[in-house]
Design a protein around this nucleic acid. Structure first.
Length: 828
DNA sequence: AGCACGCCGACT
DNA sequence: GTCGGCGTGCTC
């Protein structure tokens, strides 16, 4: 429309090649071409892909002849110009290809699927064929006489063979069939069949009475009619009949479909189909809670900061009532006509906070969850596009939804590491990207946390962000009381029982006898311990990766956490033959077992990856725990989210040392956050909660800081270290992993990269390459380089631009052709 | 990433 | 002799 006169378009395609692709705009499509519209193009010899128009221009490509755009799918672009700008920014900031960003951004339901189909060649005369057909070929041709088109799969089924290609190839050569690509929208709207009384009967009392008379003695039909009139009182309001009722609902109470069919046949009812929303309509049912004085105050402060700052950090301890503040701000922005996006970590999304928001905002709020089906995602996407949803709560990928006028982005629990995508590319940090997105929209960003990330807190202290602190705990809840339980001391005094200290046992017992609930935290991500030979020290190793296999009691197997390899537990040690194999370390599964031995009367529950894998596992555990059917709940990170139950008075951290010992500059920060978050689950109502931390290092500084709740002091100390050793936020990190199946090649490639990077003339430190902590994964060796860049934007841009050239150059050298480089900007 | 082309082992 | 293994080269 607006772009007439231009005859080439650069198309974004979902392929990992670092550029857009130039296609010709056919004359007949010129009027439909718009930036952000979806198009269909041929890519390579066979593939049909959905692309997005990124740019239109008049420059014919020099080196090749551009193929034409085959079709334009949208009359309203699916992607708006702001999004394209955002994609381009993301690809350059996170050193990935725009196609990879597109892949992450578009729900796959908006992409088209293409399937090869076979049809009979209309110019082919079977009777007078030039070549003879064999039996199998004849069978296919027979089938094509009854059915206009067959998929490859259909053909395979007809013949009962696995590879159909050779046969079809031969048929094509004999000009008996044609192969074509059938392109289909993947998204299918949900269609409901509804029924209603025919208009002429519904509007005429006498006609309706006549119908009733006619049904005398036909009880089944009569019952359906009566039920319909009960649900749809057409006497009171004739208009109601127009909408009818859902057929399935009408028949729910056991009436038969055949009776309804008769009624339709006799012209009493008619059935019709409508497209319905998968995401249910919902009216708001609650007024938002009235804000407390301190909340009111915080809202005022946030407003004030927003007058001059783009971003505000809301620092409020657990239970201080951040949600009510969010609700107020969201309402204000919605009333002003702008959109709002709220990001939550994955696990927090399944919980109370969402239903609370839903009660206030009803169905103008969309939810974007990773457990949603493709069709549901497309509906949220289209809902944002059409204005049905002006507010979305979602996981990190919801930053890609097609907003066109955001006024506010809220990132709750902004310190959560799950906002960073590790794999695959784009390896983006959703919180940071959200701030950029807000900038593109001229919107504001509010970061909320009880334990802010050091980056955000640093920015707040530097007055780059506004800073608002919420002091009071909501209601009367008090801060918990901490206890350090000394594992070493108890071991010496022989007080350890199944790895629990005496103090831990006493506190749990106390709680149980008062009919209170206990949470036990162990950050061994749902995995069970490993198996070791007591005689020779053998442990099961993965055959493809340099890691020990973890023991899964449930399945009696040992599994690799990195590649999924698994084997049965041997009955004797494969190295020395000893039968003394024992389980080492502690996973949630093992702790659950130990505790049920120590407290046989207590009802146990476990919440980790293994018990919540299916859609309702998490919900069910939450409900059981909420209903008091579980006394002790053992779990991983998951239990730190969304559990808000008043009867938890004791929280135990099983292995405090595991939290401290992370080989990473963020270890301290994470430990502080984790302990504080877990502790926040204790005693949320009037009683003071107790937190027991088992450790061999009760003197560790972090514990002292956590117990005092002295975030600032802890931050200050850590910052001195980070400054001294050049770590974020004083520098920007880029991590590059070099991967290849051959050790020597990997090492050589990593060294070559190092030499090239060292030449880049910007302020930086290049560390490594070093063999990665896990030297081999899925039979691929890996080396890591770490680059510390000066914080200035120009340093980062020039480094990244040059890095892209270097990588392309290295990749083209024959010896490194099959080497893979993975760039991770701002790794976490 | 796919997907085709191309050159060497184990099967009818 | 062929089927098919995966090395490698290309995609507007």
């Amino acid at each position: 429309m607006m772009e007439s006169g231009k005859n080439f378009a650069d198309i974004i395609l979902p392929v990992p090649i670092p550029r857009m692709f130039t296609y010709k705009i056919p004359k007949n499509l010129a009027s439909e071409i718009q930036i952000g519209a979806r198009v269909i193009v041929q890519f390579g010899r066979k593939k049909i892909l959905t692309g997005i128009i990124g740019k239109v221009h008049n420059k014919p490509p020099q080196a090749y002849d551009a193929k034409p755009i085959l079709e334009v799918l949208d009359d309203q672009p699916s992607v708006n110009p702001l999004q394209i700008r955002f994609w381009v920014w993301m690809a350059s900031y996170y050193c990935c290809h725009i196609g990879e960003v597109m892949h992450a951004a578009l729900p796959s339901g908006l992409r088209l699927s293409s399937e090869s189909k076979v049809q009979a060649n209309p110019n082919f005369d079977r009777e007078n064929a030039a070549y003879p057909m064999d039996e199998r070929e004849d069978k296919i041709l027979d089938a094509l006489e009854n059915q206009a088109e067959l998929s490859y799969e259909d053909c395979e089924k007809i013949l009962g063979v696995k590879t159909i290609h050779p046969i079809l190839k031969s048929l094509v050569a004999k000009e008996a069939v044609l192969i074509f690509e059938k392109v289909q929208e993947k998204y299918s709207p949900k269609i409901e069949t509804r029924v209603r009384i025919k208009a002429e009967i519904a509007s005429d009392k006498n006609a309706l009475e006549a119908v009733f008379d006619g049904l005398a003695g036909k009880a089944k039909q009569e019952s359906i009619l009566l039920k319909y009139l009960r649900d749809v009182p057409v006497f009171k309001n004739i208009k109601l009949n127009e909408k009818g009722v859902d057929k399935a609902t009408l028949l729910e109470e056991g009436d038969s479909e055949s009776s309804l069919k008769t009624l339709i046949k006799n012209g009493v009812f008619e059935s019709f189909k409508v497209v319905v929303n998968r995401i249910e309509e919902m009216e708001p049912e609650k007024e938002p809670a009235k804000l407390s004085d301190s909340q009111e105050l915080a809202v005022g402060e946030i407003h004030k900061h927003f007058e001059e700052k783009q971003c505000v950090l809301l620092h409020g301890i657990t239970g201080s009532g951040k949600t009510e503040i969010y609700i107020r701000l969201i309402q204000e922005v919605l009333e002003s006509g702008s959109q709002v996006l709220m990001l939550l970590p994955e696990i927090a999304l399944t919980t109370q906070i969402v239903s609370r928001l839903q009660q206030v905002f009803g169905s103008k709020m969309g939810v974007y969850h990773s457990k949603y089906s493709d069709n549901e995602r497309v509906e949220v996407w289209n809902g944002v596009l059409s204005g049905r949803f002006s507010f979305v709560v979602g996981v990190r990928s919801s930053i890609f939804l097609p907003f066109d006028s955001l006024g506010l982005i809220i990132v709750d629990e902004e310190h959560e590491s799950s906002f960073k995508q590790f794999d695959p590319a784009p390896r983006f940090q959703a919180r940071d990207s959200a701030i950029m997105l807000a900038y593109f929209h001229q919107a504001k960003t509010l970061l909320g946390s009880a334990t802010p990330s050091f980056e955000s807190y640093f920015n707040a202290l530097q007055e780059k962000y506004g800073y608002v602190q919420l002091h009071q705990r909501y209601g009367e809840a008090q801060l918990p009381q901490y206890h350090l339980a000394n594992l070493s001391a108890d071991r010496k005094k022989n007080l350890l029982k199944l790895d629990s200290t005496r103090l831990m046992r006493e506190k749990i017992q106390d709680a149980l006898s008062k009919n209170e609930q206990v949470l036990i935290f162990q950050n061994r991500r749902g995995y069970s311990p490993y198996i070791q030979c007591e005689d020779c020290g053998w442990t099961g190793q993965c055959v493809q990766c340099d890691v020990s296999l973890t023991y899964h009691q449930f399945a009696e197997e040992m599994r690799c956490h990195y590649c999924g390899y698994k084997e049965k537990v041997p009955s004797s040690c494969p190295a020395c033959g000893s039968t003394q194999l024992s389980t080492m370390g502690m996973g949630t599964e093992r702790i659950e077992e130990s505790l049920s031995m120590l407290f046989p009367e207590a009802r146990m529950g476990r919440m980790d990856l293994d018990t919540t894998r299916n859609k309702y596992g998490y919900q069910r555990l939450l409900e059981e725990f909420g209903a008091g059917q579980i006394d002790i709940l053992v779990g991983t990170q998951m239990i730190t989210k969304g559990l808000d139950f008043g009867r938890v008075t004791v929280v135990g951290i099983w292995d405090g040392d595991r939290i401290l010992n992370f080989p990473d500059f963020r270890a301290g920060e994470r430990a502080y956050q984790q302990i504080t978050q877990v502790a926040g689950r204790a005693g949320r109502r009037a009683t003071q909660g107790e937190v027991i931390i088992q450790t061999r290092n009760p003197d560790n500084d972090i514990f002292e800081k956590v117990i005092k709740g002295d975030y600032y002091e802890f931050f200050r100390q850590e910052m001195m270290e980070r400054k001294k050793f050049y770590y974020p936020p004083y520098v920007k990190l880029v991590k590059i992993t070099t991967r290849h199946a051959d050790f020597k090649t990997t090492e050589k490639a990593a060294n070559a990269l190092h030499r090239e990077m060292a030449q880049i003339p910007v302020k930086k430190i290049v560390l490594g390459p070093e063999k990665a902590l896990i030297g081999r994964i899925k039979n691929q060796f890996q080396f890591e380089s770490l680059i510390k860049l000066d914080r200035s934007g120009s340093t980062q841009t020039s480094f990244k631009e040059r890095l892209a050239e270097i990588l392309e150059d290295l990749q083209s050298r024959p010896e490194f052709r099959s080497v893979r480089w993975i760039v991770d900007v701002d790794p976490s």
